[in-house]
Each structure stands twice: as C-alpha cells, then as structure tokens.
Simulated scan of single mutants.
Amino acid sequence: MRTATEVVAAAGFQAWPGDTAHLSVLTAPEQRGRGLARVVATAAVADALRSDLLPQWRARPEASRRVARALGFRELGSQLSIHLASV
C-alpha cells in the first residue's frame, strides 16, 4: 500500500534589514482550528531566535492575530496598504 504525504501547515521567515525575521505562516483551509499554525510558527520563531533575529509577525486577519498573541507577540502598530489603479 502506498501512502501520500501532504503538507497541511508550514511556516518560515525571511531575514529583513535590521536583524528582523519576517514570519510567514500558512495552514490549509480544511485543517484550520487544530493548532497547526501555532506548532509550525513556534518552530519558525525558535529558528529566527537561534539565528539572532528579532521575529516580526504582521498579522492582519483575526485568526492570524490570535496565533500571534498565543505565541507572545504584542501589537505595536498598524499597516495600511493601498492599491493604485493603473491609468
């Protein structure tokens, strides 16, 4: 019998200027609500800290904010994105 391996959650970071680790966390929609984002984000944060980087989480959706808060992140500001139409 052959079994398939399916990735249902992943996290990582990109090093930004100023020794910052910009985190990204993804969970398959049908797998959300099971704590998987928290598990993979914890590993990404630990990896960033081992690399002497300051983890940064730009959480916009409320579900993402809940995971960030659960890991000890604090909201320190806000971000505004504007899409300019082409002319």
Score class of each variant (00 low, 15 high):
59 A>M: 08
34 R>V: 02
49 L>P: 00
32 R>L: 01
77 G>R: 09
69 R>N: 06
87 V>R: 15
27 T>W: 14
12 G>V: 04
69 R>E: 05
64 S>T: 06
23 L>C: 10
36 L>H: 04
52 D>W: 04
2 R>Q: 05
21 A>Q: 12
82 I>C: 06
77 G>S: 08
50 R>V: 12
71 L>E: 05
79 Q>R: 10
30 E>F: 07
19 D>S: 09
30 E>M: 03
79 Q>A: 03
14 Q>Y: 12
36 L>E: 07
78 S>V: 09
68 A>S: 03
56 Q>V: 15
72 G>K: 02
9 A>F: 04
87 V>Q: 15
58 R>I: 08
38 R>D: 08
61 P>Q: 00
59 A>G: 09
57 W>H: 06
33 G>A: 08
76 L>Y: 05
29 P>M: 04
59 A>S: 10
39 V>Y: 11
42 T>E: 07
34 R>Q: 12
65 R>A: 14
36 L>R: 00
69 R>Q: 09
4 A>E: 01
64 S>I: 05
46 A>W: 01
5 T>L: 13
25 V>G: 02
23 L>I: 14
16 W>S: 05
3 T>H: 06
37 A>Y: 09
33 G>D: 13
59 A>V: 06
86 S>V: 10
14 Q>H: 12
63 A>W: 00
57 W>V: 02
50 R>W: 05
46 A>H: 04
38 R>K: 14
71 L>N: 04
70 A>W: 11
40 V>T: 12
82 I>P: 01
3 T>W: 05
31 Q>C: 12
18 G>K: 07
24 S>N: 06
5 T>S: 12
40 V>W: 04
41 A>L: 01
54 L>H: 09
62 E>T: 15
45 V>I: 14
70 A>S: 10
7 V>L: 10
17 P>W: 13
62 E>Q: 15
40 V>C: 09
51 S>C: 03
51 S>I: 00
54 L>F: 07
8 V>W: 05
61 P>F: 00
56 Q>D: 15
66 R>S: 15
70 A>Q: 05
29 P>I: 08
70 A>E: 02
7 V>G: 02
48 A>Y: 07
17 P>G: 11
83 H>F: 14
64 S>L: 08
78 S>W: 04
81 S>K: 11
87 V>T: 15
79 Q>W: 07
87 V>N: 15
59 A>Q: 10
62 E>Y: 09
83 H>A: 13
56 Q>K: 12
80 L>H: 06
59 A>N: 10
56 Q>L: 14
80 L>Q: 07
51 S>A: 11
6 E>W: 01
55 P>N: 03
78 S>Q: 11
43 A>M: 09
36 L>T: 08
17 P>S: 13
1 M>H: 10
56 Q>I: 14
18 G>D: 09
87 V>W: 15
73 F>N: 11
75 E>F: 02
20 T>D: 13
70 A>I: 11
8 V>Q: 08
42 T>H: 01
28 A>W: 01
35 G>F: 05
43 A>V: 06
43 A>N: 11
15 A>K: 12
1 M>V: 11
71 L>W: 10
87 V>L: 14
4 A>S: 03
30 E>P: 01
